[in-house]
Nucleic acid binder design. Structure first.
Length: 598
DNA sequence: GCCGTTTTCGGCCCGACTGTTTTCAGTCG
């Protein structure tokens, strides 16, 4: 059992215990344990083997016993008993903003509602407002929340899907008869939310993929087992699709399975314009998808069975061999992140594809928290970890005083932190620490410290952390005031969305981008895979307006500094080049660009 | 349920906002 699976199991226990009305500190202990395990570098099973589970922070005697049972048997009698007591369907309702455990349990007890469908029905039938402490507003919040959930349709964030896909890739490579594996589909394109995980494997006819993967400990159910296609449902509820083909079909299959459908369609259209058939360019629909694609694309020309004899055999097919298909259309290679039919084929034709930013270009991280506020590590450890990543600078940006939950900094703490940073800058070589702050934008648009304080920082990020439900006029006035502030260098997570959980607050993002351009404010791509805020489309718009972007992790611990990758993927999907991203610049150039120094 | 003692018990992130009430419980960050 993987750390992620254990963490998810503990989280389910926490949810069910909370629904049951258990003591809040007990519930929090489960959640903390889950969080610690999720972030753990080492496998929990190693601790188990050595009998040192209780060495893991937040794991005591009780939780160690529960984890031992999980690792020994793959099951938990404790959880199974809990599920009998509290219907697991109630957990999904907790995602609805405004509905907490007390309300969900009330609704269950009074109306017997156990699923989202039943909840929606009860709300539509005006049953909710009859319950004590609930009224029409709650009913509307429920219907709104269910609408949001329906939009997501069981999708999973890239931050969960990508690590899983990489792990599966490694595991597949270890199976007899597997020569190469690549991730495909929306994961490869870097979409922020994905429906399933697609992998394309180059195999020999006697491969053991189906046999091994069907019995895999993380597989809950085999959804389809065909000669060239294996569809699985994982324990965590994700769909995984493995396409198995021979060498000569690998590249075309990868291209096909990577999509997007719109991009594919456009390529075929271009081929037709050039008087070529799909077969001419070696881009015929794979057999395993022939039926499905009829529905997906409605294109009947190209879905005839592939004639292997007529397909040009490509030497050493692989990732780069996808280039051949583009070449045959007279195009340069188009990377997966751009394959969305958002003008990439036209740009390729004109030789105007962007030279996209990549992780290698990133030399700093301008948004991170320490144990001065709600981070887990001290400044030095964050700085050393950044240096190990090859960064040249970081900005420490803890929370401001209004954010009490996050232990926002008092004026005295700001001074103490500044002194410590100066000391560390003397001590540490090859990295510069900037003394920054993530200052709250208060409800009236004023900032959480006076200007005399703000001007002392090297860099200021301004973010909204309260009053999310202001209507658009007031919210925009608030953000505009912050953008116009002379000491605000970066606007943090500009829309405030949390994927699958919280909608963006009521802002006009286009207007924010215009204002950023006007005021010289940098906009953030918050790289946390829960946020990815700005998203790819707005990033592209910001680029069009010439607004520079900072890709920041907002890390609260060492591990999450690694989430830079997701921010970079989002930047690439937004067509950004290194020049558009301020934390690819050297420090002098960056500092000179800050509003305060201009 | 965990942790760290002041070592077997008491503290653990706390205050604002919202929707429901008419004094407050629940939710959220």
């Amino acid at each position: 059992m993987t750390n992620l699976e254990i963490a998810w199991t503990l989280t389910e226990m926490a949810d069910l215990l909370e629904l049951k009305g258990e003591a809040p500190y007990k519930v929090r202990a489960y959640r903390r344990a889950a969080g610690n395990i999720k972030n753990l570098e080492e496998e929990v099973s190693n601790f188990y083997t050595h009998g040192t589970l209780e060495k893991i922070p937040g794991i005591g005697k009780n939780l160690a016993a529960k984890i031992s049972e999980l690792l020994r048997t793959g099951r938990s009698t404790f959880l199974e008993d809990l599920r009998k007591e509290v219907p697991p369907g109630l957990r999904k309702m907790l995602v609805i903003p405004g509905l907490g455990t007390r309300s969900v349990y009330q609704i269950y007890m009074h109306l017997g509602v156990q699923t989202l469908a039943e909840l929606e029905k009860a709300a539509k039938n005006k049953q909710i407002r009859k319950l004590p402490g609930m009224g029409t507003k709650t009913e509307l919040a429920i219907l709104r929340g269910i609408r949001m959930l329906k939009e997501e349709q069981d999708k999973i964030p890239l931050g969960v899907a990508l690590p899983l896909a990489l792990m599966l890739k490694d595991q597949l490579l270890a199976i007899q008869g597997v020569k190469q594996v690549e991730i495909a589909g929306s994961v490869r394109r870097g979409c922020e939310m994905v429906g399933d995980i697609d992998l394309v494997a180059k195999v020999t006819p006697d491969n053991q993929v189906a046999a091994v993967m069907s019995g895999h400990p993380q597989v809950k159910e085999v959804l389809a087992n065909e000669p060239e296609r294996l569809a699985l449902l994982s324990n965590l509820g994700f769909k995984v699709e493995i396409i198995m083909v021979g060498s000569e079909e690998f590249a075309s299959t990868l291209l096909y399975a990577t999509g997007s459908a719109a991009h594919r369609q456009k390529l075929l259209q271009l081929a037709a314009e050039q008087g070529k058939t799909a077969r001419d360019i070696g881009f015929s629909t794979p057999r395993w998808l022939a039926e499905e694609s009829k529905v997906l694309t409605g294109n009947h020309e190209d879905i005839k069975q592939k004639d292997k004899n007529k397909t040009k055999v490509i030497k050493n097919p692989g990732l780069n061999e996808e280039e051949v298909f583009y070449e045959r259309l007279g195009l340069p290679y188009i990377v997966p992140e751009l394959r969305e039919d958002r003008g990439e084929i036209e740009a390729a034709q004109k030789g105007e594809l962007p030279q996209l930013v990549s992780l290698d270009h990133i030399v700093g991280d301008l948004h991170m928290h320490t144990n001065y506020s709600d981070g887990a590590e001290d400044i030095k450890r964050m700085a050393m970890a950044a240096r190990e990543r090859g960064y040249r600078y970081i900005a420490i940006t803890d929370h401001s005083r209004s954010l009490v939950v996050a232990r926002g900094l008092s004026i005295e703490q700001i001074k103490a932190q500044r002194a410590e940073i100066e000391q560390l800058n003397q001590e540490l070589e090859d990295i510069t620490i900037l003394a920054g702050i993530e200052v709250d934008i208060l409800k009236d648009g004023s900032l959480d410290y006076e200007d005399e304080i703000l001007k002392e920082f090297d860099l200021v990020i301004a973010s909204v952390h309260s009053g999310f439900s202001l209507e658009q006029d007031r919210m925009m006035a608030r953000v505009e005031k912050a953008l116009r502030h002379p000491y605000v260098d970066i606007l943090g997570h500009p829309t405030g969305r949390i994927l699958g959980r919280r909608r963006p607050y009521a802002v006009d993002v286009k207007r924010i981008i215009e204002l950023a351009a006007e005021t010289g404010t940098i906009l953030e791509i918050n790289a946390s895979p829960d946020r990815l805020d700005l998203n790819d489309n707005y990033v592209r718009l910001a680029k069009d307006y010439g607004v520079p972007i900072a890709i920041n992790t907002d890390a609260h611990d060492l591990k999450r500094m690694g989430e830079m990758e997701y921010g970079v993927i989002t930047a690439r999907r937004g067509w950004l080049e290194p020049k558009d991203v301020v934390n690819t610049w050297d420090l002098d150039k960056l500092l000179a660009r800050l509003k305060r120094n201009r």
